[in-house]
């Protein structure tokens, strides 16, 4: 049997195939046809009406051109990018600090660790509705609390200056624990000997954080950031419940736009074309991250 230098363990062919293919086949079967469908329909004017009565026509790149020329679509891209960057950066910093804080506290409390995960565990639609009552202009508890300190009520969700940040607030509240969980897991898997050696060499805790922990966390954090990036980019349910994209489109994300312009009326051509544009956009934004994890996973061997 030929042995490859990088492959330390011999691999049985049958075993390999039985292990690797079920997942790949499931993914291929469930995604290949839909992807082809999306590509094809994006070039047509297919709607519910033409589906039921016939008459779907090829329109070439019209759906794409219309979308790119629509200033509402461009604005929704801007909103989405702004939101994604702010949310991912804040969540990453906050979640990582939380993980370091808890992990560094000598004996990490099991209870606290679970408690901080709670926001992530809440059913998203329900908890967003709860936030809506809390943000309420008239009777919302946040305004009541502000009132105690003598601050005038804020129309959180319907004031054009605050709506965006209110939605952002909810997203950070819910997903900073996500970053916390993954960073915490990574911290737990970190070899302790490095730290011990450094401590013996007289490095203080800040130096150890700076020179050992953070470099170690770089790789897992790439994954965490990429995951958050992808998920935040398609933000929809919070906006749909809290603001419906208003006031004056200030919270309308790309998905919200696709939903309102295409999906809701089964305007399939428009939905497909804008979805593809959105996918390209996120691949573009996530490119540095994708490349770095790609390098880690693929090209190193």
């Amino acid at each position: 049997m030929e042995k490859k230098r990088t492959q330390l363990v011999d691999h049985n062919r049958v075993f390999t195939n039985v292990m690797v293919w079920p997942a790949l086949i499931i993914l291929l079967l469930t995604s290949l046809l839909p992807i082809i469908y999306v590509l094809v329909t994006s070039l047509t004017d297919m709607t519910l009406i033409t589906m039921n009565r016939g008459g779907t026509q090829w329109v070439g790149l019209k759906n794409y051109i219309d979308a790119i020329q629509d200033k509402d679509f461009l604005h929704s891209i801007w909103v989405t990018v702004k939101f994604t960057l702010l949310a991912v950066v804040t969540e990453t910093i906050f979640g990582t600090l939380l993980a370091l804080f808890l992990h560094g506290s000598g004996r990490p409390s099991k209870l606290l660790r679970t408690l901080f995960l709670f926001p992530m565990l809440c059913p998203p639609i329900t908890i967003t509705l709860i936030w809506q009552t809390m943000f309420s202009n008239s009777y919302g508890i946040l305004n009541q609390i502000l009132g105690v300190f003598g601050i005038a009520p804020v129309n959180w969700l319907q004031d054009i200056n605050t709506a965006f940040y209110s939605v952002l607030w909810v997203d950070i509240w819910q997903y900073a624990p996500f970053v916390f969980l993954l960073v915490y897991v990574a911290l737990c898997q970190m070899p302790q000997d490095l730290h011990e050696a450094a401590a013996l060499d007289g490095a203080n805790s800040f130096q150890r954080l700076r020179h050992i922990t953070l470099p170690y966390l770089a790789k897992p954090m790439t994954v965490v950031i990429l995951l958050r990036l992808i998920d935040t980019f398609r933000l929809f349910d919070k906006v749909n419940v809290l603001t419906k994209g208003g006031p004056y489109n200030s919270t309308r994300t790309i998905t919200m736009y696709i939903y309102q312009r295409g999906y809701n009326d089964l305007d399939i051509g428009v939905t497909s074309a804008t979805s593809i544009l959105m996918t390209l956009l996120i691949l573009l934004i996530a490119f540095p991250y994708i490349r770095s994890s790609f390098k880690q996973m693929v090209q190193r061997r």
């Binding site: 993914l27 995604s31 046809l33 839909p34 992807i35 999306v38 939903y259 939905t271 979805s275 996918t279």
Partner: peptide, 17 residues
């Protein structure tokens, strides 16, 4: 491919499926 499946928006996938 795995990455692509993860990135494609579900609202595009839902109808063909």
């Amino acid at each position: 491919w795995i990455l692509l499946v993860r990135v494609l928006p579900p609202i595009a996938f839902a109808m063909p499926l």
